[in-house]
Design a protein around this nucleic acid. Structure first.
Length: 870
RNA sequence: GCCGGGAUGGCGAAAUCGGCAGACGCAGCGGACUUAAAAUCCGCAGACCAGAAAUGGUUGUGGGGGUUCAAGUCCCCCUCCCGGCACCA
């Protein structure tokens, strides 16, 4: 299969990864250190020529499948260290899985639509397509140089028609099922992007891409996807997703923001049938409602306010304040303001008249945009009521205060009093009920009498996907003068994005200016129609790309049978910044695909891993801070292996990593030592040569090295199967090498140690190294006379617990928990024997003189603690 | 305010089950090799006190309390840092 760039006919040759001459001091004439560049380039070239090297086997191979994906990058032009870290983690895991007998799928692709390409087009006068494809070529070259084990034959780029036509296909399916709909509404508009943003893309009132650019509210008609149809399932699913970090699950729960309550209709006083529906989570306090509060944008406000100039002015002011607060990002701290409309409504529970107010703290886009205000039992209502002198009526009391211990009035609770572990008072027929019971009974009562019902409200909103930009997937919809809205027939997909379009950030969607695209004949009536000129949010692209990897075919988004073999992903790896956006959208997409029969899984990924950021000098790497470390520079100086290994060694993968240039050097020194250790003492075994040897006959020094080897296998295998703390895996390899170097004579040419023993140590060291530093591993495997091409699927070494076990252990003797003496005893020695040994030790006896022993605690292989008095 | 995650030498960190705190590495110091340097190799190294030294003692995992023979680890309270949500009715 051809490579992607080839297939496309890349406009200019891929930018070579430049490897400037390394620092002179690293390459002195008699420098004995490992020079990674020629070695790594040799293997990179060999691996490049073998396109099926990292291809999975067919599902019938009988091996357990393992599907690991790292989040695909945006092709900005160059990899940064965060990418390297992300991919080094995934690559180590993929290689370990191959070696432990799995059928591994490990693909890579490009999230290649998006605004930066348009900005580059404006700034450098280059076409987004050309710019993007060149970036892909450059970054792919970097990835190959880094030695990642991707099956490039499955590479996808979301900006290509082969891919985005399926976005369009999905859109039509969503439209067919009523899950894609058009609505005119207030939307978030970023003036710098010159386009609309989804709610998820607004951070503190500003654009997620342009910190400090406040998002404006504009009234626009655009396409939305009904992700809210899945609110409940998206929420419920989180409980079962134990392979996902709690942090991400919590963030998604917060984002979905489910709250249980009830809608209640208040009729307008004055005989009309007009109703105001409020949403409340505390219907049990409805007898304490002393006003209704409407959001300034509430549709009824205009009618209630009429043309009273004072009220109109207040309303205007309120809207302006809200806008300002939103732009400053401190909505919560704004002073509560409001005014009485002059109208009242009727509380359906007690037929009381309650005044209707408009208040700036009521949000139109949550619940119904109207609330019943219960000042006694809600903090915000309390504050508002005090300011405007609205009645405060207590309708619940803490249980213990229901029957005062002494005569007299029950003690007043401190207001506002919100505890749900309370009982109702002043609530007519509901008096004496517990809050929880009342909530149910009152909602039922409302429903039976037709003025309300139990309701669940979510904070999650539908996903607005229209973008007024060029570089994205065209929305496959036409607007015909006669037929109205017409979906593009499926067999006419893809709707190709036109090329050579003039890009500006002004004047709405660039596509409206491309006549041959914009103006078309209606497929139904042949009359004049125009295309939807918006493109899709790029989060559509990334919502399903990992399915496409499994079978990039041209008759469907992917082959369902093959997808069902690989899905769910066993492991998904990426940055936590996608916790809500991408990870919520792709869960939604999976559920939709399941519902139309494309896949069987409910969730895309069994396990999710979110790696920490790479920072330097305590701050995120950025050009403006001048603290960016270029992977190319590191690769040129220390090699790909050392660069990757350092990203794993410097910190546990889930924590932020503070980059230190000298740290890479340390890891590089380790690789050099290992290189020298094996090349200078290499033990090659012939094909039929026996690999067995008598362990019991090994000299103590050799036995210690063998023990350390098996302990190292245990530790590294444990890290892969457990917490992924590869920093300790690397440390363990360093310890093993140190142990070998200390006993260098064991491996010298004239060594008395069995050849098979020496070979075993060297071979297993290389096997352990290979998931982390594949180039050096391949080189050393060859040095040992083995076939480096077979290394990828060579069985992972298995630790022998008997060989790993210590014969003797050092235990400590404590007096009341304080260390007093160290003793060496046999491993697993009987507690009683250890106790006797400890108590008979000269130093211990001396220290015990005149003291009374209260108790002696023996912990096997650890310590003896003597509890003394006096 | 609510939720989640953190705080361990000069620095990155380790200690996976309550049992020797500081593995491994960086930086540092001392030594070997070298005309010299680089590279490499060997050794020292939490802090404080005593000692010429070997060594001995005290103290020490953000702060305070508790449980325990024993706490970086478990419980309660507090401080600070990072992330998410936040006038969500």
């Amino acid at each position: 299969m051809k490579g992607l760039a080839q297939e496309l006919g890349i406009v200019s040759p891929p930018a070579a990864v430049t490897e400037p001459d390394a620092e002179p001091h690293l390459r002195a004439a008699d420098d004995t250190r490992y020079d990674p560049t020629p070695v790594e380039q040799k293997w990179a070239a060999l691996w490049e020529s073998d396109l099926t090297r990292y291809a999975p086997e067919p599902p019938t191979c009988g091996k357990p499948k393992y599907y690991v994906v790292e989040m695909l990058p945006y092709p900005s032009g160059a990899l940064h260290m965060g990418h390297v870290r992300n991919y080094a983690i995934g690559d180590a895991l993929a290689r370990y899985m191959w070696m432990s007998g799995h059928n591994v799928l490990h693909p890579m692709g490009w999230d290649s639509f998006g605004l930066p390409a348009e900005n580059a087009a404006i700034k450098h006068k280059r076409q987004p397509r050309e710019w993007t494809l060149n970036n892909i070529a450059a970054m792919k070259a970097q990835m190959k140089r880094l030695g990642f084990s991707y099956d490039w034959s499955r590479e996808i780029a979301t900006c290509l028609p082969e891919y985005y036509r399926w976005n369009q296909w999905f859109f039509l399916k969503l439209f067919e099922k009523g899950l894609a709909y058009r609505k005119k509404s207030k939307v978030n508009w970023c003036p710098d992007c010159a386009t609309v943003l989804a709610n998820e893309q607004v951070v503190d009132g500003c654009c997620w891409r342009h910190e400090g650019t406040p998002v404006e509210q504009r009234e626009l008609e655009q396409w939305s996807l009904r992700i809210t149809n899945y609110s409940e399932e998206l929420l419920q699913g989180l409980d079962k997703m134990e392979g996902w970090p709690e942090r991400v699950r919590t963030m998604q729960r917060n984002w979905i923001g489910r709250s249980e309550g009830a809608n209640v209709d208040f009729k307008l006083d004055g005989g009309t049938e007009t109703k105001i529906t409020v949403f409340t989570t505390r219907i049990d306090t409805i007898f304490g409602a002393t006003s209704l509060q409407l959001a300034p944008q509430h549709p009824l406000v205009a009618e209630l306010v009429g043309n009273d100039p004072a009220k109109l002015a207040s309303l205007e002011q309120m809207l302006a304040d809200q806008k300002k607060a939103r732009e400053e990002g401190d909505i919560g701290s704004v002073d509560k303001k409001g005014f009485f409309t002059g109208h009242c409504a009727i509380n359906p529970f007690n037929q009381e008249r309650v005044p209707i107010w408009v208040a700036n703290y009521i949000l139109m886009d949550y619940g119904t945009g109207a609330i019943m205000s219960v000042p006694a039992h809600d903090e915000r209502d309390f504050e508002f009521a005090n300011k405007y002198g609205i009645e405060v009526r207590i309708v619940i009391l803490p249980r213990r205060q229901q029957e005062p211990p002494e005569a007299g009035q029950p003690e007043q609770p401190v207001l506002p009093f919100v505890a749900e572990d309370s009982l109702l008072i002043n609530s007519g027929p509901f008096n004496g009920m517990a809050c929880e019971e009342a909530q149910k009974k009152m909602a039922d009562f409302a429903e039976q009498n037709g003025f309300g019902k139990a309701t669940i409200t979510y904070r999650l909103k539908d996903w607005g996907i229209s973008r007024q930009r060029y570089w994205g997937t065209p929305i496959p919809i036409l607007y015909c003068e006669k037929c109205g809205l017409v979906p593009v027939p499926e067999d006419q997909l893809p709707v190709l994005l036109p090329e050579n379009v003039e890009i500006t950030l002004a004047g709405g969607s660039p596509l409206t200016r491309v006549k041959e695209f914009y103006e078309v004949a209606c497929p139904r009536c042949g009359g004049t129609a125009r295309r939807d000129s918006d493109t899709m949010d790029t989060f559509v692209d990334s919502s399903w790309y990992f399915y496409r990897y499994t079978s990039p075919i041209n008759t469907a988004p992917f082959d369902s049978d093959i997808a069902n073999y690989w899905f769910p992903m066993d492991q998904y790896i990426g940055g936590v910044e996608h916790a809500i956006l991408h990870l919520m959208y792709s869960r939604f997409w999976t559920k939709f695909m399941r519902d139309i029969g494309l896949v069987k899984n409910d969730e895309p990924a069994q396990r999710l891993f979110t790696q920490g950021m790479v920072i330097k000098n305590g701050a995120k790497m950025s050009k403006s801070l001048g603290n960016v470390v270029s992977p190319d520079d590191m690769v040129a100086r220390y090699g790909a292996d050392a660069t990757r290994l350092y990203t794993l060694f410097a910190a546990p993968p889930d924590r932020d990593l503070d980059w230190q240039d000298q740290g890479v050097e340390g890891v590089y020194r380790f690789l050099s030592r290992l290189y020298r250790f094996i090349t200078e003492n290499s033990v090659k075994m012939a094909a039929g040569e026996p690999r067995e040897y008598d362990v019991a006959a090994l000299a103590p020094g050799a036995r210690n090295v063998l023990r350390k080897l098996h302990q190292t296998i245990q530790r590294i295998t444990g890290d892969f199967q457990g917490r992924w703390h590869f920093n300790t895996s690397v440390a363990a390899m360093m310890e093993l090498l140190n142990a070998c170097m200390v006993k260098a004579e064991l491996f010298a040419a004239d060594s008395a140690a069995p050849k098979a023993f020496r070979a075993e140590v060297q071979r297993k060291m290389v096997l352990l190294l290979s998931p982390f530093a594949p180039y050096l591993a391949a080189e050393l495997w060859t040095v040992l006379g083995e076939d480096a091409n077979a290394l990828l699927r060579h069985p992972w070494p298995i630790a022998d617990p008997l060989l790993a076990k210590e014969d003797e252990v050092e235990i400590v003797v404590q007096f009341n928990g304080k260390l007093r003496q160290r003793l060496t005893v046999a491993h697993d020695a009987e507690d009683e024997a250890v106790r006797v040994t400890a108590l008979n030790d000269e130093k211990v006896k001396e220290a015990l003189a005149g003291k009374q022993i209260v108790k002696v605690i023996v912990v096997k292989n650890k310590l003896v603690n003597i509890v003394i008095k006096g």
